[in-house]
Amino acid sequence: MSIGFINGQFIEINQAVIPIEERGHQFGDGVYEFVKVYNSVPFLLEEHINRLEKSAAGIDIKLPYSLGEIKAIVIESIKKSGLKDAEVYFQATRGIAPRNHAFPDVSSSFTLTVKPSRKVPKQSYEEGIDTILLEDERWGRCHIKSLNLLPNILAKHQAAKGGNFEAILVKDGYVTEGTSSNVFVVKNGVLYTTPLTSNILAGITREAILKLAESANVVSIEKKFTPEFLSEADEAFISSTSVEILPIRAVNQQLIGNGKPGETTKTLHNLLCKLRDGSFASFE
């Protein structure tokens, strides 16, 4: 069953608990993480918790729990839900205070939900997804996984209205990332992805893919690339916690390669699934 957690207490998922003057509610003043659970095991949990700490530090929020305590809360929440395949969302906000832009000195809040895992249609992995290119209009600190997602939401909605799965964002002539994903290109057997800067999120799945590529002797290069480089790729895919690795069939209705998932994409996804399922125990 779906369950919730707020500041030390497990609750019904639909229970009203957020005060009007919660800064996360009024300002988006907080950070979050999203973890997938496979066969009752949260995948790459420590990496997600470590990133939450970095994001919180980036906007001067002191987490109300230690990283070890957060890990324990996540694991206990999964057990209480009874779900084997689930998704865990948790966030930390600055807390509750009278509405004012300046930071108050208040205790931060921590909330969490566990829900049944949503599935990407099998067809999307077999045939690839359609995407569009849009201007990246987000703030300049996208390396912080903050609650301020309105530009992402609007871009994703525009993509969906046109029958596309994702919008790929472009800033100053270069691809940054998707609205909720990182972007990879394969050309002549070499894997390319945008380097880590404040313009993109350091994806947990992105980092795992780069390590898996190294283990599979796939050369990877972190390098800025243009929309033209993307459109001329042999293969391309997006990555995220929610979709794992999802092949890109087309960008702005132009096919990538032959329009079918490529061998490098399939190889990396197979390795990621082995890592997820415990049959690939090490990046070494």
Rank of each mutant, 00 (worst) to 15 (best):
I3A: 08
I6P: 11
I6M: 15
Q15P: 15
I18C: 15
I20R: 15
Q26A: 14
D29N: 09
Y32I: 09
V37M: 05
A56T: 05
A57L: 12
G58V: 01
K62T: 14
L67W: 01
I75T: 12
K79R: 11
Y89A: 01
T93D: 08
T93W: 09
R99V: 04
D105F: 10
S109Q: 11
F110Q: 01
L133T: 09
L133I: 12
R138H: 13
W139K: 08
R141C: 08
N148M: 11
P151K: 11
H157Y: 13
G178K: 06
N188L: 03
G189F: 00
L191D: 05
S198W: 02
I200D: 04
G203L: 00
I209C: 07
L212Q: 03
A213M: 02
S215C: 07
S215G: 08
V219Y: 05
I221S: 13
I221V: 15
E222P: 08
F225L: 10
L230I: 11
L230R: 10
E235S: 05
F237E: 01
A250I: 04
Q253H: 13
N258T: 10
G259C: 07
P261W: 03
K266P: 06
T267V: 09
L271T: 07
K274Y: 11
R276V: 03
F280Q: 06
